[in-house]
Design a protein around this nucleic acid. Sequence first.
DNA 1: TATGAATGAGTATTCATTCAT
DNA 2: CATGAATGAATACTCATTCAT
Lengths: 203, 203, 203, 203
Amino acid sequence: MEKKNVPSLVKDQQLIHKRREQIIKGAVRLFIEKGFHRTTTREIAKESGFSIGTLYEYIGKKEDVLYLVCDAIYDEVTERLKKQLHTTGPALQRLKEAIRAYFLVIDSMQEEVLVMYQETKSLPKETLPYVLKKETEMVDMMEEILADCKKENVLNLSEKEMKLVTHNILVAGQMWTFRRWALRRHFTLEEYIDMQIKQLIST
Amino acid sequence: MEKKNVPSLVKDQQLIHKRREQIIKGAVRLFIEKGFHRTTTREIAKESGFSIGTLYEYIGKKEDVLYLVCDAIYDEVTERLKKQLHTTGPALQRLKEAIRAYFLVIDSMQEEVLVMYQETKSLPKETLPYVLKKETEMVDMMEEILADCKKENVLNLSEKEMKLVTHNILVAGQMWTFRRWALRRHFTLEEYIDMQIKQLIST
Amino acid sequence: MEKKNVPSLVKDQQLIHKRREQIIKGAVRLFIEKGFHRTTTREIAKESGFSIGTLYEYIGKKEDVLYLVCDAIYDEVTERLKKQLHTTGPALQRLKEAIRAYFLVIDSMQEEVLVMYQETKSLPKETLPYVLKKETEMVDMMEEILADCKKENVLNLSEKEMKLVTHNILVAGQMWTFRRWALRRHFTLEEYIDMQIKQLIST
Amino acid sequence: MEKKNVPSLVKDQQLIHKRREQIIKGAVRLFIEKGFHRTTTREIAKESGFSIGTLYEYIGKKEDVLYLVCDAIYDEVTERLKKQLHTTGPALQRLKEAIRAYFLVIDSMQEEVLVMYQETKSLPKETLPYVLKKETEMVDMMEEILADCKKENVLNLSEKEMKLVTHNILVAGQMWTFRRWALRRHFTLEEYIDMQIKQLIST
DNA sequence: TATGAATGAGTATTCATTCAT
DNA sequence: CATGAATGAATACTCATTCAT
């Protein structure tokens, strides 16, 4: 749960939090529109509602904004998903619902998720581990439910197979964003979800 | 098979071809190393073996290089794959071999494939359709084999399901490159191939 | 003895004096380390022990700090020197002791003196005369002793020659700081002092 | 005689030489007027007669301009001085003429010399030794003549004394520039020269 | 009085692109 | 056709200064 420490010249932690939310909100919009590299720091400042000088009171360098953005998107995806997860009931049903919930969250945050995946390579080197760790956490969440399925004997998968299915689930979700140009032509979201669930859990 | 027309000041088509191969070769190396945005035209020219002036005799703008590169990588993936494809024999076996061949090609061109997918969003707007079309061609190739399987009654999939499986196959291949940080920890390439084939064609 | 009036928003003169001493102390350290231009007002404030806002309660602009610093250094040099000066005894001996004392003071305040000479050109235009006046006062001090020597007939110099020798004395002192990279290689301070005295007063 | 290698993107050595002369000429004027720190690279480019982009084809960073300038001034001082030096005749006379020539050169290049001494501390770290070396060369030149005087028994100085006198001579020259605010009030250049010669060589 | 967040003009430097040779 | 010098718009980042609290 640790986060990379992004340097700030401002002391007031609450203010930092507030301003960074503004920054993230403004930057996401811009990154969606034109990508990280084509967005200038001045644009980020303006979109955030303050001056360039103020922007740099809350970050150390432009790349920090990208980290804040990716981190925030991940947090939101995870958080929204967690809210939808059931903790009781048959494991297989919980799994299917988890996948559905995950896909729905992704769909509702399409643009953001796309940004996150496309700009990951531009993240400051030191922060990449922090972001990948978040991915790992999601993997773990899914894997846990799959493990429950195994315990309940409704899914007969080896450890490795479970690992693979988990990755396939996550990728199928992301795929809905980065291949939408092709998928949208053939499937509605509901169709896509149903079919992928069927494919992924071939029961 | 049509390609976007990248403007050149030079008339001699053969020369154009030769120089552009140099450009592509040089640029790929650089894009792999530092990404499109962080690579300068000067570096591309130098790595290609000629001056910045000459570079601009063969392209209109920097983005054109990216198009040439992506286009070339796609061509090579497709070409290499085609060479491996059997045209006779049981469809199901051909399918499995196609998937295996595809994954092997991707693995052997990891870095290039990564560049291609990561920089897609930076492609000149007009060229995006040309690149997506290539993707579509690959989809079609795979789908055709899947169709054969259906004809031979070894695979019981609806039209839509076939479409989905095809996309899943392609994405599973790409996934081997852009999620290698996680996958490599758990699977060898051979394991990955075998397990994905099993997963994708749950027969 | 007049000083340039550096504007302050604060009324309490005692407080002004106290705070400015803090400023000078902090700034000198920084100027020695990195020079005036490379030192930021924030750093000065921090080193002085208070906030940037407070700093600007006691100065009008950054350059004022430089004036305060130069002024303070001059004052200290003068003050320390005065403490060492004898007012009785043979003039020639008093002269030699004055030169020695001056060189010793300079040596003990090397860094400060260096700052003063190197940054003089960055002083606010209006304050330059005030600083030069201090120099003049030192010149006068030395000249007075030289005049005594003349009165006592131990030194046979014209008015002009006296002026020149005075300047040479002062410069020889400063020289010990700004040419130390060369002088230190050849002379100890004591040697330097003895030889310069001999040179300057060729008696 | 070696010079620090200032990086250039341009190949043609002659062109580099020509452009750098333009840069030096333009920069000197500006540095005299407002100092190194207050001069912007754009101003330097404009004054040099070309664009900011072109400026950076011939230097690596702003500080390089300062090095070029200081180096050029030293070269010119040395060169002009050398032209004036006699190599035959009585050593003492040659010494006096050398001092006179040196002071005249300094006087004719007052502003440049001032810049050189005032901005030395802003020189790029790596280049400082190169500049100090030039100073040392001048010291050596003077010392040689002094040595000749000793050989001819017209000057009775120890080795150390010779070193000191040499430095005193050089500093007396510089002093004419950086203390002119005081010296001009009392001496004409000719007076200053004559009196300093007398003072320095107390014969 | 003291604080420190906000400001935005200012600055060095880069780099895609052009064009004369 | 090839070269590489010239260009200048663009950009990340800094920092003196202000002002509301």
